[in-house]
């Protein structure tokens, strides 16, 4: 019997499980970074992790606070310039999985990390897209990790920072894209995957102890569930230990704000 775990840990672990040993992954900072490194430290030791600062095949011992911590460079196979990273490696089609988060998401997994409210008169100015607009379209497929809530899982985005499945259906193909777009959305409650035809994100796996009602309460659109919904396997002792040790090393390394 595994120890008790938090919904946040379940989310990170479920996302880590989606990564494959042979993947070349473009990693965003925060939860995508935690999940990717957990995958590397558990079932996917040979996974190639790439951060947009130019570090290729990096194996950080602690999670970076920024996308360009020295830890990433020191443990990388090689470090390239940022233009080279975006031109040769991302645009060149060398990345199998892009791993993103966001402030807002809609049912077609389009993401907003730019602004809440009108662009010219923002209620909240968010950091912006960074690498996401091109990660979303150039990587073979996209995994998204986000905690659910009515303010973040919304019916209509204030701004499309990066394309998911657009308006659904074959919208990506009509825009000339050959990449798959978001294939997995892992939350603290469940896992969504796109409907094969409409491309709406539908629930395919529910984390242990979570009800369908709770998922709906935390989603700003009417949630669709797959015909067969799985139960996400409980975190294993190894997954939990590895994740907690990673977070403990990270907290010790970054220090507490004085």
């Amino acid at each position: 019997m595994a120890d008790a775990y938090t919904s946040n840990e379940m989310m990170t672990i479920a996302a880590a499980r989606a990564m494959r040993n042979e993947d070349v992954c473009f990693v965003g900072i925060g939860m995508p970074s935690a999940a990717s490194n957990l995958a590397r430290l558990t079932h996917a030791p040979d996974i190639t992790l790439i951060y947009e600062s130019g570090t290729i095949a990096t194996k950080p011992d602690v999670l970076p606070l920024s996308i360009g911590d020295s830890e990433l460079c020191e443990t990388a196979l090689t470090t390239v310039s940022v233009p080279e990273m975006f031109r040769y490696w991302l645009q060149g089609g060398r990345i199998t999985v892009g791993f993103l988060g966001g402030a807002q998401i809609d049912k077609f997994a389009n993401l907003n990390t730019t602004v809440i409210g009108p662009y010219d008169k923002p209620k909240v100015r968010l950091p912006g897209g960074g690498g996401a607009p091109e990660i979303a379209t150039s990587c073979g497929e996209i995994f998204i990790i986000m905690a659910q809530g009515k303010r973040s899982f919304v019916d209509k985005l204030d701004f499309i920072t990066s394309l998911g499945h657009g308006e659904g259906g074959d919208h990506r193909a009509r825009l000339g894209l050959k990449t798959k777009g978001p294939t997995k959305l892992v939350t603290d409650l469940c896992i969504f995957q796109p409907d094969p035809v409409t491309r709406e994100m539908i629930v395919t796996s529910i984390h242990p102890g979570v009800t369908r009602e709770k998922i709906q309460e935390n989603t700003g659109w009417p949630v669709r569930f797959a015909d067969k919904v799985a139960e996400t396997p409980t975190p294993t002792a190894k997954e939990l230990e590895t994740l907690r040790a990673l977070h403990a090393r990270t907290a010790a390394a970054h220090g507490k704000a004085a």
Partner: peptide, 27 residues
């Protein structure tokens, strides 16, 4: 986007008036 900024610097260094890249699709 980052890709645009990185490309714009590279174009500046290369003495070009513009940067061209595959970007901003659907954004």
């Amino acid at each position: 986007s980052h890709a645009a900024m990185a490309n714009a610097y590279e174009a500046g260094a290369a003495g070009l008036p513009l940067a061209v890249f595959r970007g901003y699709i659907g954004a």
